[in-house]
Simulated assay, not measured.
Amino acid sequence: MIEQGLLAAILAIAAGGAAWDIAKRRIPNWLCALLALVCALYSFQVFGIVGLGWAALHSVIALVIGMGLFAIGAIGGGDAKFYAAGALALQLNQALAMFAVTAFSGLVVLIVMVLGRRFVARSGYAPAELRRMQLPYGVAIALGLAITLLRF
C-alpha cells in the first residue's frame, strides 16, 4: 500500500515538473528536492537499504553526466537535477531503460515543437520569442521516469 502511494506521488511530482517546465521553461530546485526525497523513500520501501544505495549511485552518475551536459549548454541545470532526482527511484539495471525512453520522449517533444512552430508561422503569427523557445525537456524526463517505473 505504501509502495503504491509513493509511486503515485512520484508520478504526480514528475507531471508537475513537466507542467512547470512547459509554463516557465525551468524546473525549480524545491521540486527536484521533493522528487528526490519521494524517490529515495520509494527505493528504500521497494528495494531496501542496499537497493537505495544502488539507486543513489544511479542518481550520482546521472547528475554528473547531466551537469556535464549543462556545462556545455546542451540541457538546463533544472533538467539535470530533475533527471537525477528521478533516477533515485530506479536501480542501475533500469538506467539504460530510463535513458532510452527519455531520449525517445525528447525526440517526440522536439518534433511536436517544430511542427507547432511551423503551424504558428504559417498562420502569419510568428513572434520572435517563438523562434527562441527552448525545449521543455522536463516533459521527456517525466515521461521517461513514468514509463520506466511502470514498464521496466
Score class of each variant (00 low, 15 high):
M1N: 03
A8C: 09
L11C: 12
A12C: 14
I13G: 06
I13S: 03
I13C: 07
A15L: 15
G16E: 03
G16C: 12
G16N: 11
A18H: 08
A19D: 00
W20P: 07
D21E: 10
I22C: 15
A23Y: 02
A23P: 06
R26G: 11
I27K: 11
P28K: 03
A33I: 12
A33Y: 14
L37G: 02
V38C: 05
A40T: 13
A40N: 11
Y42E: 00
S43L: 08
S43Q: 06
F47D: 08
G48F: 00
G48H: 03
I49P: 08
I49L: 15
G51I: 10
G51L: 09
L52F: 10
G53I: 06
W54P: 00
L57P: 00
L63D: 07
V64W: 01
G66M: 05
L69K: 01
F70K: 10
G73L: 13
I75K: 01
G77C: 14
G78H: 01
D79C: 03
A80C: 07
Y83G: 05
L90V: 04
Q91F: 11
N93T: 04
L96D: 12
M98V: 06
A100Q: 14
V101S: 07
T102F: 14
A103P: 09
A103H: 04
F104C: 12
S105A: 15
G106S: 05
V109C: 09
I111G: 01
I111K: 02
I111V: 15
V112K: 01
V114G: 00
V114Q: 01
L115D: 03
R117G: 09
A121M: 10
A128R: 13
R131D: 11
R132P: 06
P136Y: 12
Y137G: 05
V139L: 13
A140R: 02
L143N: 08
G144I: 06
G144F: 14
G144P: 10
L145W: 12
A146H: 09
L150I: 14
R151P: 01
R151Y: 14
